[in-house]
Simulated scan of single mutants.
Amino acid sequence: MHIDNYYTFSQSRSLSSAKKIGNVPSPNYTDFNFNTKKAPAMSDEKYREAIIEQAKKDQSAGKFQSESAGFRSLVKSYVSTVSPDRKNIITEGLTAIFKNKNPQPKTLNLVDYLFGNVKYRKEATDVSYAEFYDSNGEMVASYSNGKWISYGTKAENARESELWGIYNKAWNNAARASQRNSNVASIDATIGSIDKSV
């Protein structure tokens, strides 16, 4: 188990019961936080334009970030271009675990976890714990107690932070523009009412 993922976020997610390998149901790859590698839907410049437009649209609708389905969709698409192939990593990992006939020790101690000696725990045909790593050695997912947890890689975290920066700046600019327009309308209404009273 690696414990040096400095900027990693993790998200616990429900299982997708559609497909199983052994006793382990596959994670739900359509979930907002469980990304797997996808080809970019557009160029980075087009993504930037789409993020800015989404921020303006969300601001005028009174929504911010994950309150907006459009934002969530953009994040998933934008981040998954740098995601590891979690689906393949998990499928291959589980397949290898279930092919291994050697039982794992029944008792695991803290030292085993801290120094990375334990990657999964299996008794007979049931897996109760497993970790999955990409080719960079970063943990990308784990399965424990019937739940999947997705861990963001450094590349995913950086790309998501980049998106937030673009979105937040555009959203704040749209909010300021809306406030200015509201103030101008208020001044115009006041001037109009003064003119009528004169």
Rank of each mutant, 00 (worst) to 15 (best):
K147V: 05
E156C: 05
I97M: 11
E92H: 02
N117V: 07
S60P: 00
T81H: 00
T153M: 04
T36S: 12
K196Y: 11
A158F: 02
N5L: 15
I3L: 15
K38I: 09
V82G: 02
A155S: 07
N168I: 08
Y7H: 13
R48V: 14
A96P: 06
I187E: 14
A141Q: 03
N100K: 07
T81S: 04
M139C: 11
G137T: 03
S60C: 11
K169R: 07
E162D: 09
T8E: 14
Y143A: 10
R72Y: 00
N100T: 03
K38N: 11
I21C: 08
M42D: 06
V75E: 12
F115C: 03
G22A: 06
E92W: 01
N5M: 15
K46I: 09
S135F: 07
F98P: 01
V198D: 05
K169N: 02
F32C: 00
A189D: 14
A96C: 06
A185L: 09
K87W: 03
I51P: 01
E92G: 12
I149W: 00
W171H: 05
N157H: 06
P27L: 07
T125L: 10
N33Y: 10
P25E: 06
T8I: 05
R72C: 13
V140I: 09
F64P: 01
N173C: 07
F9Y: 09
K101S: 15
V140P: 06
N183K: 08
I52K: 04
I52M: 12
N35E: 09
D188R: 08
V75P: 00
Q54H: 01
K147G: 01
A69W: 05
K101N: 12
S66F: 12
S178P: 02
N88D: 15
G152Y: 13
K119H: 12
P84R: 07
Y47N: 02
S182C: 08
K147Y: 01
G22F: 06
Y167S: 03
R159E: 07
E162A: 10
D134E: 04
K38F: 05
N5I: 09
G62F: 07
K46T: 14
N183Q: 14
K122C: 04
S150P: 00
S135G: 12
D112C: 02
E92L: 07
H2R: 14
L163M: 12
